[in-house]
Design a protein around this nucleic acid. Sequence first.
DNA 1: CTGTTAGCGCATTCAT
DNA 2: ATGAATGCGCTAACAG
Lengths: 358, 358
Amino acid sequence: MNTRSAKREASTGRPPRVTLKDVAKAAGVSMMTVSNVLHDRPNVSAALRELVQRRIEELGYVPNRAAQQLAGVTRPHFGLLYASVINPFIASVIVGSLTAASRLGIDVTIELAELDDPKSLRSTISRMRDTGVDGLLLPSPIAEFVERTFRKKPLKFPAVAIAPGFSMPGMASVRVDEEGAAFELVSSLLDLGHTRIGHLAGPETQSGSFARHEGYRAALLARGIEPCAEHLERSRFNFQDGVEAAERLLAREPRVTAVFAANDTLAASVLAVTHRRGIAVPRSLSVVGYDDSPVAEQVWPALTTVHQDAFAATERAVEMLNASVAAWRAGSFTGPAEDLLLPYRIVHRASTAPAPAD
Amino acid sequence: MNTRSAKREASTGRPPRVTLKDVAKAAGVSMMTVSNVLHDRPNVSAALRELVQRRIEELGYVPNRAAQQLAGVTRPHFGLLYASVINPFIASVIVGSLTAASRLGIDVTIELAELDDPKSLRSTISRMRDTGVDGLLLPSPIAEFVERTFRKKPLKFPAVAIAPGFSMPGMASVRVDEEGAAFELVSSLLDLGHTRIGHLAGPETQSGSFARHEGYRAALLARGIEPCAEHLERSRFNFQDGVEAAERLLAREPRVTAVFAANDTLAASVLAVTHRRGIAVPRSLSVVGYDDSPVAEQVWPALTTVHQDAFAATERAVEMLNASVAAWRAGSFTGPAEDLLLPYRIVHRASTAPAPAD
DNA sequence: CTGTTAGCGCATTCAT
DNA sequence: ATGAATGCGCTAACAG
């Protein structure tokens, strides 16, 4: 046993990794040749190529990433920021980015971002940049916060927003036309004869809430109905707050025949209140949600809602960012950013019915 | 502008990273001194330390991980395998491991594992090992599959199972006593006077399902009730399959006064069937679930269930694995693995009531 | 207490 | 078509 491997083994507690040099020695060629077959370069004779391949497999050689990187190989490296709440959307985004990135040979480091604290957000991002991250994946509502934080002093590298409510200035985005989806959803309620339609909106700070609210207003206006403030309640995106808001709404405006909740969780809150108060859904009250999250099909009655594929959106976002980073590297990065619109689909379930005869 | 930096800039499209050498030059000291300051080593005079610190901050120097690793610094590096399904549990596990790992300075790479395919599982794991992963985080049901796959030819490095139904041979684990929790939950049903209690079980291949079923049986037996096969239905852990299974169960055994579903999703399936058939919950039928996932509070009536903190469990798992890896490295890794039991809590909500008078 | 030297694993000139 | 030499940024011996 030579000194070198003995030392390595002692220090790591595991067998030393097989290196390119080991392979070269085993095959009786130079390191360069091994490297050449590894990278599928033309300048190796077929015979040697074959031999080296075999040795590589026999020894189980795997290139050392750190060494490659140090030697100048630059793989794309993305950062993904998420907010503290764990919900199905962010789970899809995380898994989607991991999937797409591994397919494209991209590294991604995922980090928790402190919202409500621009200072910490700035430092998180600049630290990421300093450690070699060359592009940012920003699921909503992080994207909005970042945009706001960096409005004056723009980000110095590419970013793409995932599922924001609107296109983002100075940032690429992948999203669905949420305003349009909400418009269509509320229009379908109007088609059923509903005229007094309540809206349980999400936080004003989230562009998605805003877009859905706009779609709601536009749909009413398009039928000559003036949206009235009494039909609007606001809540954060969690069940309990939603229940309280729904209580307020239904207590104040018992004559509404339909409610559009800004997401499925809030729609579930509305259903909880209807059950508690003995309001029949959908006979006396129709309820619609947004997102088509798992809960939409699991509550009773199952929710009519808008389906959008967060996983697919994230994959597209990764591809877009990949292109941006490549352009950036080539020095040809042009400011105005792409805004990719993905399709959505209204899912009709059991929570909607024609407006009651009155 | 010297040639070197010009080249680097051209190739990357971004300003060259500041290196240790740059800092040393700026501070007028040797690289070693900078390194010593960085690592808080005692052998630097206070004055120099201060100076170097300042330069580091001014220049925004960040160590190059690749270089550090190549130079022999060994950070722990964990692998986390997940199965394709995206559910709240796996989301918590992913986020929990990311959180704990970043706190402990551990790298973690997350990868999708093909279940049902031992060959692919083996290759995924051995590839991870070859790329420098020195410990595995295995959320259920991956842990069971890995255990089964590697039963004969054991894993050659530490692993910890997260939330399996039982302790895992040859593998550390962090879990709750699911059998005990199920026992307690079903006992609370018995305390309410229920004697004909159905069980909507999960897949037999998952140890969690098995443990919960065992707890159910034991609870009945403890009161002198013989568990009967007619009261048992099985389903995969998704809502639709659950609805069908619940239909079968309730159609065959309309006299059951309570149902224990193996998780909250399946409990929601039971509720859907009760709503459809006009069975009053909890007046005519009590329903309990397991997991305390978001849906548990969002359905109507809200589910009595068992709460267990997947996030916390994962954090503990990361800490355990960290210790195992350290021991492994020191060569003192002892086979028999720890089995950490975390507390659970029965959450009583609105889906349970005393058994009907009959 | 501080600086010098060597080498981690790989890719990339440049020779041959 | 193949091989030898050099350096990426850092750390761990070793001198001074």
